[in-house]
Simulated scan of single mutants.
Amino acid sequence: MTAPIVTSADQLTAEWLSDTLGKDVESVRAEAVGTGQIGTCFRLELTGVGEPTTMLAKLPAIDPATREMLAGVYRSEVRFYGEIAATVAIRVPRCYYADISSSGADFTLLLQDMSPAQQGDQLAGCTVAQARDAVENLAGLHGPRWCDPALLDVDGLAVNGPDDAKLLAEMYGPATEIFIDGLGELVAAEDRETLWECVGVAEKWALAHPERFGLVHGDYRLDNLLFPPDGGPGVTAIDWQTLSLALPARDLAYFLGTSLSPEERRAHERDLVAHYHRALQSHGALDYGLENCWEDYCFAMIQGPLVAVFGCAYGTRTERGDRMFAAMVARSCAAIRDLGTIDLAGSATAV
């Protein structure tokens, strides 16, 4: 990597891209895409010699103070594409360039343009066939580095410790209050009760099962998945800012609990968990039994309300966002009650 990090669209010149990609780029046209809440993103159209002719450029937020605040988030995504993606089997956009400053506030990512793939719709939910495709792809993240001790040496990755769990518990209550007050009638009374039960067991939940750890996307949901336009299999996962080490079933429970209606989840979750488990074993996690997988899935369902509550309470509020987070909480809280998650979390002990 000889080209410098760039942080704005006007720096994405033909000369810079030629140096970065090792190909002759004659001209470039940049078009802004996305909402720009975490950073800025541009679709680049290139003319010159060779492929690709389009790609996406992800850059930091415009505001310097926002960049400093999000440095950890930026490091996570650059680390994934630069160090980890090649070691796992999950489908992700190809990365052409990834670099970040020592402070973490400035970064540049050049990624494969996945169009005409279609982004999932978190509010609408997904079909069972899409869910099957998504959990099989998810196993490609978890399986290849299942309980890999080398992950513990990766800068920025660590399994939750007591201090982390205590901080989570301290923050979760106020966030839940903000969430419930802010969404009002969008949150049913029974779901409010379940949300507060989650707060009560959050610290134990965060510390449980450290013996089973792996790479966890952290926000593996429909809005962060791109589906083939023909309706067939081949989903791709994007947005790796929340990568961590934790119980892998958190991703599985989060996805199924927030993506399917309660009726479809109840009818198909056993089969979908078994499908994920088979894929997981095909990637090398042979010492992990199906019953353990099911138990972890039931236990991990708190990931749904946890992410939704914090995302809504401390993110930028929009009408669609409010309805989306309300739907995620309604679906995942129903799963928590169905599966006995609160009892499982309350009785959990750290190994």
Rank of each mutant, 00 (worst) to 15 (best):
D113P: 06
D121G: 05
A237W: 03
A175M: 10
L138W: 02
L111Q: 08
A150T: 15
E185C: 00
L215M: 13
G156R: 01
H209V: 13
L243D: 05
G120S: 10
P229K: 06
I180M: 08
L157P: 13
C126Y: 01
R145Q: 12
A124C: 07
V201M: 07
V154K: 11
A124R: 11
G218P: 05
L138T: 08
L157C: 13
G140S: 12
A117M: 14
Q130A: 13
A202W: 10
Q241I: 04
L111E: 03
R145Y: 05
S244A: 12
G200C: 01
Y172A: 12
L183N: 04
Q112A: 11
F179D: 01
F179S: 05
L167G: 13
D230L: 06
Y172V: 03
P233D: 10
D163H: 11
T194K: 01
L123E: 14
G143Q: 00
D106N: 09
L152Q: 14
A158H: 11
F227T: 00
A189K: 05
D239Y: 08
Q112H: 12
A139V: 00
P149V: 06
V128E: 09
D155H: 05
A237M: 08
A189P: 10
Q130S: 06
A158Q: 12
A124S: 13
I178D: 04
G184Q: 01
R132N: 13
D133N: 12
L152W: 00
E193R: 13
G214M: 04
C198P: 08
Q130Y: 06
E136I: 07
Y220V: 05
G234Y: 06
P162W: 02
A117W: 12
T236E: 14
L225R: 05
S244K: 09
Q118R: 15
E170Y: 00
D239R: 12
Q112R: 10
D106C: 02
